[in-house]
Design a binder for these strands. Sequence first.
DNA 1: GCCCGTATAGGGGCGCGCCCCGATGCAATA
DNA 2: TATTGCATCGGGGCGCGCCCCTATACGGGC
Lengths: 217, 217
Amino acid sequence: MSEIHILIADDHPIFREGLKKVITRDAQIKIIGEAEDGVTAIELITTLQPQVAVLDLDMPGKDGFAVLRAVQEAKLPVKVIFLTMHNSEAIFHSALDVGVSGYVLKDGAIAEIVNAIRSVAAGRNHISAELSTWLLNRAHRATELAQQKPSLADLTPTELRVLKLIAQEMTSKEIAAELFISPKTVEHHRSSICEKLALRGFNALVKFAIAHKSELA
Amino acid sequence: MSEIHILIADDHPIFREGLKKVITRDAQIKIIGEAEDGVTAIELITTLQPQVAVLDLDMPGKDGFAVLRAVQEAKLPVKVIFLTMHNSEAIFHSALDVGVSGYVLKDGAIAEIVNAIRSVAAGRNHISAELSTWLLNRAHRATELAQQKPSLADLTPTELRVLKLIAQEMTSKEIAAELFISPKTVEHHRSSICEKLALRGFNALVKFAIAHKSELA
DNA sequence: GCCCGTATAGGGGCGCGCCCCGATGCAATA
DNA sequence: TATTGCATCGGGGCGCGCCCCTATACGGGC
């Protein structure tokens, strides 16, 4: 069994210290780099070529999702584990959709992150047991996803601008004032976005925008 | 200079490891106990009598606020430092209102928590420098705070049940069906909650409930 | 020239949260 | 007994998001 080279990225220095202490107890795993933001993480993954990257989801600048997208585009041979604290089902499904290998909650047991690293390095996946119910939900969601998964990429630039402002909890009037256009036009864009994202019901857009705020930054 | 005896409480095992590692680098500070929830923290503070308690704000069961209230009611001679991650100005002011000695952000420098412990043990206060602007705001807020500060504790049990369901993004109709009461009654509770929390404007309650979902669990 | 997507702007209607007012019943308390 | 707080239920009005429709203008591709 050779060494497993990993990189860790988290913007909390104290948490990073804990992570290092916990992981280094396992002699097989070697931390070859650490980053405190997404940009540094991408650079270090590119240069150091770790087998596994343990990424925090909430980081200033580029978050874990952005880092994963970047390494996928660069076709880097690194497995990614998301280490997060908030247990949002929407974020969880988004993470699995973009192809993450592991998803571990920060409040989990100390041993779990080590197990996750070993599993992922061996080519398997590792999802926190607390999330198994959500994992089961994906079977039901599979049919929906098979038809079409609405994506932010389908939106026009103007619609994206509006959506970003919606995510900041602004009303149509406020957005109209911000963009120097009529509130009615903003309403029209909201409708278009709703249609493209297959959103229905009361305040669906606001809920969606807040849930996906990190992807809009 | 004698030893400073402290207790740490945080529900994230990995973060606790990091905290221990960082603090034990200072030979003068000795960790005499650690807790992973508020109830345990209160017990350990009572029995071990540390000089300083470093408390996470988000903990299952009793949070940092509850622990502080408990030790104040028991008149225990312990200084309390809140260690939190979200930089909400409202929470910050609440913390200072209830008489915390230190308020440190988790994403701060490693050395900061040690400095905070030494300052607080010496009878001084320590507030993260990032929050100095909020500290200045307190002069303006003094008049408002003198009148009343809204809190979740002011809500009746029924209102709390409704608020929890609101946090799950349920409509008044759905909540009414869930609780077997009239939608109008739910509306009335929403109004009462809005009044007690000083919330105004469109969907203020939904935004508040989602933002404070963790405190409602 | 014509069609299509995009952005702009409006009208009307509906659902729902928020706000004002009212009322009844029930329990604890002064 | 009387008051106070809580929970229950209702009416009416307003704001705003959502949904239906039309319309104009611009640019690109057939």
